[in-house]
């Protein structure tokens, strides 16, 4: 039976798609058959972050409406044979998603895959609620910034009430906090909420902290999930996060300011 994970946040631009791409690639690299689905109907971007935008023929909405089967719509990743991408429609709107339709597609995928990663759109409208409805686990992506933390708190409330698990009285969705764009330098200067502050407010299990890193933009420029940039702190932090999701107990890294030489320190201020 496949495990369904939703990557959600409420607020836009915090790193949901970056996280979905990295997480799905990480699971595939550990040998798990993984599919990542873009739920942002009308504003698809996962294909771009995954670097397969020119290979999109059919999409998620085509599959729901029966115009294509799921095998025709999925794009096989060229770097990892375990990974498939199901792109969103660019021309339709989110109303094309229905519980029945999405449920049918997920049931079919569950026969073939071990992990189904659902990349949620921002907001709390149809696309976002559909992405979370069938989830077993949720990764709540949060920036250490007031509006992102507030929206994450809202999403946590919605996750616990508007899901299949909640409606059927099953055990609730397992929720994990992923803090992204974290800058230890700015935290040290008192300009940014510290990790402990965010955890204090949201009180969720912390699955990872992704440092603010230029490698994230480089990766998206190139259409390569940042987890494949093994030299970068962000790539390593995503790799750690995948390990923790799979049950390993790893200490969090990149939480403190790297020690700089005297000159670095003098000129930084």
């Amino acid at each position: 039976m496949a495990r369904i994970i939703v990557v959600t946040s409420g607020k836009g631009g915090v790193g949901k798609t970056t996280t979905s791409a990295a997480f799905a690639m990480g699971l595939a690299e550990r040998g798990f058959k993984t599919v990542v689905i873009d739920f942002d109907v009308g504003l698809r971007n996962l294909d771009l972050i995954m670097g397969c935008e020119r290979r999109v023929v059919y999409d998620f909405v085509n599959v729901i409406s029966g115009e294509a089967n799921v095998g025709q719509a999925m794009i096989k990743d060229k770097r990892n044979p375990n990974l498939f991408i199901l792109p969103a429609s660019q021309t339709r709107d989110k109303e094309a998603l229905s519980i029945d339709g999405v449920g049918r597609v997920l049931d079919e995928l569950a026969k073939e895959f071990e992990f189904i990663v659902c990349d949620s759109p921002a907001g709390i409208e149809k696309g976002a609620t559909m992405a979370m409805y069938f989830a077993d686990d949720a990764i709540v992506v949060t920036n250490p910034e007031v509006s992102s933390v507030r929206d994450s708190d809202r999403m946590i409330g919605i996750l616990s009430s508007k899901s299949r698990r909640a409606e059927q009285g099953l055990e609730g969705i397992r929720e994990f906090l992923l803090v992204t764009r974290y800058s230890p330098e700015r935290v040290q200067r008192g300009e940014m909420l510290a990790l402990e502050d965010v955890q204090d407010i949201l009180s969720l299990d912390l699955i990872g902290v992704i440092p603010d890193s230029p490698s994230v933009l480089n990766a998206s420029n190139a259409g390569v999930p940042v987890i494949l940039d093994r030299e970068s702190s962000a790539g390593q932090a995503y790799s750690d996060m995948v390990s923790r999701y799979l049950g390993e107990d790893l200490p969090h890294r990149f939480l403190t300011v790297e020690k700089k030489g005297l000159f670095g320190r003098l000129f930084r201020g």
């Binding site: 040290q188 008192g190 909420l193 510290a194 502050d197 204090d200």
Partner: peptide
Amino acid sequence: QRKTTGSAAIAKERLQ
């Protein structure tokens, strides 16, 4: 000094 008077403290208080 900047650490204790930084805007992060205000952010936390407002958020709570």
